[in-house]
């Protein structure tokens, strides 16, 4: 009897908008998933030659090495200001920022807020991992009440350090914005939904419909002191109640564009 022959069809492969480089992220860190999703969207829209990324300060400081598109590196928190300048001078390019919660919600709070208020036609990918990853896991504005970090060793005390800032809700309340949603990277189903949102955010920019931000709940297994699978569960159980997933702003113009 002869063995059955099989035809092989690729169902999934590494996107070409990622460079053939090992990233600097820790094993199991979902920064890598967010990168892959952005690269998949760039591939699917065929915009690799027309995209300019703006990298943050934080673990994603080397993002420009990992994407095979043009990239600049912003000063800490200033990515939305840099993206504003680039988009206004090169309006036919797709300009996106990639920022952590220390970068976007602490030192960069002014830049993101005003870029949103101006309704800049840029795409913001915001990675919320509830701490400062790069510098050793300090408390961020997004750290959960009671969460232990290196600078809140007994847990975040809201009397002392305030409450977590819910960025998607805050930015959505600004009149100038067009598309503001929160998604999560803790399992395959949510990752697929995150990709759809990233695609929509780029489609909004393509049609000149204004400011789009996708907040992505993300893991930091290293500073959370958890294995990568346990970090996925920790996100699901602890972050989802504080950061509900959802569409916080979809402007009528985005709705009627059918994207």
């Amino acid at each position: 009897m002869t063995e059955l022959q099989y035809k092989e069809t690729v169902v999934f492969e590494r996107p070409t908008a990622l460079t053939p480089t090992q990233t600097t992220y820790c094993p199991g860190c979902t920064h890598g998933v967010a990168h892959r999703l952005i690269a998949e969207v760039i591939d699917e829209m065929g915009i690799r030659d027309d995209t300019i990324g703006v990298a943050p300060v934080g673990c994603a400081v080397f993002a420009y090495r990992f994407f095979d598109v043009d990239f600049v590196e912003a000063a800490h928190g200033r990515a939305p200001a840099m993206a504003t300048g680039i988009k206004r001078s090169l309006p036919d390019r797709f300009v996106f920022t990639y920022q952590g919660d220390g970068d976007l919600v602490s030192i960069g709070m002014a830049e993101i807020t005003h870029a949103a208020a101006r309704g800049e036609n840029i795409t913001v990918i915001f990675i919320n991992n509830a701490n400062y990853g790069m510098t050793g896991g300090q408390m961020a504005p997004t750290t959960l009440p009671g969460q232990k970090t290196t600078s809140s060793p007994t847990g975040r005390d809201v009397e002392l350090a305030g409450y977590p800032i819910q960025m998607a809700e805050l930015i959505a309340s600004i009149q100038g914005t067009s598309y503001v949603v929160r998604r999560s990277l803790h399992d395959a189903r949510n990752i697929r939904q995150a990709k759809k949102a990233i695609r929509t955010a780029f489609e909004v920019q393509k049609r000149g419909l204004g400011f789009a931000m996708v907040e992505l709940l993300s893991t930091c297994p290293t500073n959370w002191h958890l294995t990568p699978p346990d970090a996925m569960n920790w996100l699901k159980e602890n972050m989802l109640p504080v950061y509900p997933l959802g569409d916080y702003k979809i402007h009528d113009a985005v709705k009627s564009a059918g994207i």
Binding site: E8, T9, V10, V11, F12, E13, R14, P15, L18, Q22, T23, Y25, P27, G28, C29, T30, H31, G32, V33, H35, R36, A39, D187, A188, I191, R192, M232
Partner: peptide
């Protein structure tokens, strides 16, 4: 879908 390092190719 969950691989952070885009290391996996899937074939049917």
């Amino acid at each position: 879908m969950v691989c952070p390092d885009a290391a996996i190719t899937v074939y049917r």
